[in-house]
């Protein structure tokens, strides 16, 4: 799979399907700068691989290129790339930077793959 296959701003990865009708448990967005840059590709691929391993079939991933979609970056007040946002379940949670370590990613996004969906949504409030 290559990034150029993905229409910008609305992407699917893994088993998830992006859209309002989406039923995926976790909705993750990654903001990158320039779809064609090696760094952006690497960031997206690394993230996709970890999510496939850790949350198979339970997530959807949206890739947003801030250069193509600056309004979206403005709206979500993104400054750094890559920024990875757990949009669902609420509350939103974001981390910045390249992450290759699955555990750091999950901790950073406050996701426990073994917990119930409700628990993942609530734990942040503790």
């Amino acid at each position: 799979m290559s990034l150029s296959d993905w229409p910008p701003g609305r992407k699917t990865h893994g088993k998830g399907i992006i859209g309002t009708e989406s039923m995926a448990e976790f909705h993750i967005t990654i903001f990158i700068a320039g779809e064609e840059t090696a760094q952006a590709r690497r960031s997206v691929e690394t993230l996709g691989r970890i999510l496939d391993e850790q949350l198979p079939g339970r997530y959807e991933l949206e890739v947003v290129d801030v250069i193509a979609h600056p309004a979206r970056a403005e709206k979500e007040r993104i400054l750094a790339t890559p920024t990875i946002v757990r949009q669902l379940p609420p509350p939103a949670r974001r981390i910045i930077g390249e992450i290759a370590d699955p555990q750091r990613l999950l901790v950073g996004l406050n996701i426990d793959p073994t917990a119930s969906p409700e628990a993942n949504g609530e734990r942040h409030d503790r």
Partner: peptide
């Protein structure tokens, strides 16, 4: 969590 740019 890792290296980044001010890409936006």
């Amino acid at each position: 969590q890792g290296t980044f740019d001010l890409g936006a």
